[in-house]
Design a protein around this nucleic acid. Sequence first.
DNA 1: CTGAAAGCGCTTACAG
DNA 2: CTGAAAGCGCTTACAG
Lengths: 326, 326
Amino acid sequence: MPRVTSADVARESGVSRTTVSYVLNGRADVVLTDATRKRVLETAARLGYTPSAPARALRSGRSDLVLCVLPDWTVGPAIDTLVDHLTTALADHGLSLLVHIRRGARPLSHLWGAVTPCAVVVLSPVGADDARAMRQAGIPVVGTALDEASEPDVFAVPQASIGAVQAEHLVERGHRVLAYAAPLDDRLGAFAVRRLAGVRDACARHGLPTPPLAAVDLDAEAAAGVVGAWHAHGVTAVVAYNDEVALAVLAGARAQGLDVPGDLAVIGVDDLPAARLAAPALTTVWQAIDAQAGYLAAALLAALGLAEQTPTRPDDVFHVVPRAST
Amino acid sequence: MPRVTSADVARESGVSRTTVSYVLNGRADVVLTDATRKRVLETAARLGYTPSAPARALRSGRSDLVLCVLPDWTVGPAIDTLVDHLTTALADHGLSLLVHIRRGARPLSHLWGAVTPCAVVVLSPVGADDARAMRQAGIPVVGTALDEASEPDVFAVPQASIGAVQAEHLVERGHRVLAYAAPLDDRLGAFAVRRLAGVRDACARHGLPTPPLAAVDLDAEAAAGVVGAWHAHGVTAVVAYNDEVALAVLAGARAQGLDVPGDLAVIGVDDLPAARLAAPALTTVWQAIDAQAGYLAAALLAALGLAEQTPTRPDDVFHVVPRAST
DNA sequence: CTGAAAGCGCTTACAG
DNA sequence: CTGAAAGCGCTTACAG
């Protein structure tokens, strides 16, 4: 079953390929009779004509694909939501989002060279040279940053600030000796390091001791060891890297017979469904993923000239959700 | 900065585009001097040449992209892992996996027509007509099914069997009156309906009453109401659709002052990190996502003629992980 | 108002 | 051993 081409549509409609192209691309500047337009449209639909994307891309040097590059680790449900929103927002403008999970070896340049996307969304720390190369090739790149960013095409959720609000919340509750529960997975390092720095800065600002750091396995027994040691050293509150780590700390405290938040307060990040359902319910940091996705989508459309408005940065990007664990 | 083309490489190397193409595609059947090969390769590397995928696809009618279609709901961490494994397995063969989240309106045909993938992985229930159209166009389609499947390119994890092993586990533990905790999200219906059927069949086989069904919100209070009613009606064990729902049931039981598993046993599906860390630790069903991904990747490569071996179906696709909640 | 023709970058029979 | 030429399907100046 050979592919249906615009030539087929032209032949069946009794017009030239030029006319077919004009009609199908809805060119208002070209004068065509309504009857012709209608006939071509109907023929195309009847034959099930789909323009060849490769041919189009070859011709224009640009496809209607948006490449979304993710890091090779699972960042959690937030990423899923973000991708979900982006997909919808772009689909409204005829763009298809294609997600690519970045695996170690293969260079990114190879991929975008191969896909010829019209834009790239980078949700993964990407080499500055890769970003530069894409921009030089005229491909808009929008993305997220882990630190403050001023460029309009980068949306920053400063990870240090997340650590800071976690620590501030505990300090407000009267805690003076905090500890930081880091994830075991090295690949989360880029996030964890920044959040930890935010926690340390906050503690320093309040004249509190530098919080000790421990990697906590997602296992009650392992966590119990860490939690027991912290408690013995006077730690009364734990800032956890995320909700999963926080749940491990909770399990560790339980195994040690410690009362939460009486003996030990715990705060996470992500607001997983499991956080609300934990015993006790976990205080956490909620992130406005929808707003972030909206901003990225708007920035992308603006960069592509598909939307007039420049995006406005959402203000409430994240905040603490106080629950029973603090 | 215009694109570097094979013509550039040819000119710089002092050979024709034909020769460049032969060298770059490593055609062993064409006789070329080693010196020529070397020179072309070096020039290509020096100029940073990347073949244009659209041109290649236009020429061959086939790209090196594999399209992976996901449903528009988040199926949970299992999907992330599956995609992760597929990406790696395909990258080893020079194929790039592009994930597309299926959103309501846009027809799938439009997308695969636009992307011109060399194969499609369908992890989402997809219309039979779409699948047929793709196969007719010569694009291999592999995927997962929710029911038994015999085709080698479909990997089935019969959802009914998952429900069945959950129920069997509780029956073995001596429970006679079960209930089913379904998710609130309608989009999970396709899974939930099948798992529930498996539970009902298992109960029928053992001569037990048909388990009552309730949708459980991921909220302790809401769950408490459901759990309280079940307990009052003599239910001693709950089969939950997944771990999140199970955690809600656990929270509900806690709010009602019920002992788990003394008053009420609970079993989930997914083996989330949070399941192991719950109070009490949640019994759940673990799925061999790696093995499923491996099978799909192998089926795909076989369909593309990139691997000689036909894949072997893994045997231990899922099993109960007994913990404190049952 | 509509058509013939060029060209995007590639690969591959075919001719030397 | 290597080159000139065709053609994949599209869009768009350009000519009628």
